[in-house]
């Protein structure tokens, strides 16, 4: 179908008018725009889910370091910790935190991942969707629905804010990924369309201003650990949304604020590695000592 879902408001209206879920509207739109079948759309999504799962299972077992030697063994450390002492928040929390680390560490080892929306934020969406899927025994179809919902949210944000740290800081990369995950989480938990979008809004609103200041210009510090934090952040947003705690600022206005914040952000904090963490004493020393330039 020819749907106009360029904003969250339009998406909610379309879902209401058509009495359909977000993933149904999105997959029908994809069919219309790109002249492919629903099956083709869904099997492409499934392939992405398979790669996400492969990256998690490989990453959980590996302690191979990155090319720079700076990162790569945190997932193993966290897994060992949980073996000795369970997470305070329980098994789902253990899964989310280790899966985010596993995926990001696979990324920096030059192994296969799904950029979702970017490579530097590739750990967040898989951590949330796959952890929830395992916890609640989701079917393949439900996993696909959740990832399409997540993708729809990212697509709407990207209509206004390019998903690039160089343009709008990390709020546009990991922030977008966290908003995508929050919405997917609410959908998996049976929330309605408004709650899904509200979860994304809450997640995004609380990440505005997040800078992109990677040490040495590498997708490692702080990116790897940040993926863990923002995967957990998504769950917080989902819990609030499922309680009908509404963002007083509507989602489209939050995206406007995100764009403005990105524009006001100094170029030193937008993927140039000239400010912030990258410009700290240790940030500079680590690179001089370790790094292959």
């Amino acid at each position: 179908m020819e749907y106009s879902i360029s904003t969250f408001e339009k998406l909610i209206l379309t879902c209401q008018n058509e009495n359909k879920e977000i993933y149904e509207i999105m997959q029908e739109k994809e069919v219309y725009d790109f002249e492919i079948s629903i099956n083709e759309v869904r099997s492409k999504v499934l392939r992405n889910i398979q790669v996400m799962k492969e990256a998690i299972s490989k990453g959980l077992k590996s302690s191979e370091k990155s090319l720079s030697g700076l990162c790569g063994d945190d997932c193993i450390k966290l897994t060992e910790k949980y073996k000795k002492q369970s997470a305070l928040f329980g098994n789902l929390y253990e899964k989310i935190t280790t899966y985010a680390l596993a995926t990001m560490e696979e990324n920096l080892r030059m192994n296969r991942i799904v950029a979702c929306p970017t490579a530097g934020s590739c750990g967040i969406v898989p951590a949330v969707i796959i952890a929830l899927s395992e916890k609640f025994g989701l079917t393949e179809e439900q996993e696909i629905n959740a990832l399409i919902t997540a993708g729809t949210i990212g697509l709407i944000i990207s209509n206004k804010v390019p998903m690039a740290g160089a343009v709008a800081g990390c709020q546009a990369e990991c922030g977008t990924a966290s908003a995508m995950s929050a919405g997917a989480c609410v959908q998996i938990m049976g929330g309605n369309v408004k709650q899904i979008i509200n979860a994304s809004a809450l997640a995004l609103k609380n990440l505005l201003g997040l800078t992109c200041d990677p040490v040495g210009g590498l997708v490692e510090i702080p990116c790897v650990k940040r993926n863990v934090f923002l995967a957990v952040h998504a769950i917080t947003a989902a819990e609030l949304a499922l309680a009908d705690i509404e963002s007083k600022i509507p989602p489209d206005q939050i995206v406007d604020a995100m764009l403005q914040t990105g524009q006001l952000m100094s170029p030193l904090l937008k993927e140039t590695s000239l400010g912030g963490l990258a410009a700290t004493k240790n940030g500079i020393n680590i690179i001089d000592k370790n790094c292959i330039k």
């Binding site: 999105m26 997959q27 994809e30 725009d33 790109f34 759309v41 492409k44 999504v45 392939r47 992405n48 790669v51 990155s66 696979e106 990324n107 920096l108 080892r109 030059m110 192994n111 296969r112 991942i113 799904v114 950029a115 979702c116 929306p117 970017t118 490579a119 530097g120 590739c122 969406v125 990832l147 399409i148 997540a150 993708g151 729809t152 990212g154 697509l155 990207s158 209509n159 998903m163 995508m180 590498l218 997708v219 490692e220």
Partner: peptide, 16 residues
Amino acid sequence: KSLFDVISPIMTGPSS
């Protein structure tokens, strides 16, 4: 713009 501009590419890391 497509859904797969957001959830893809499947790629070798670390940087798009």
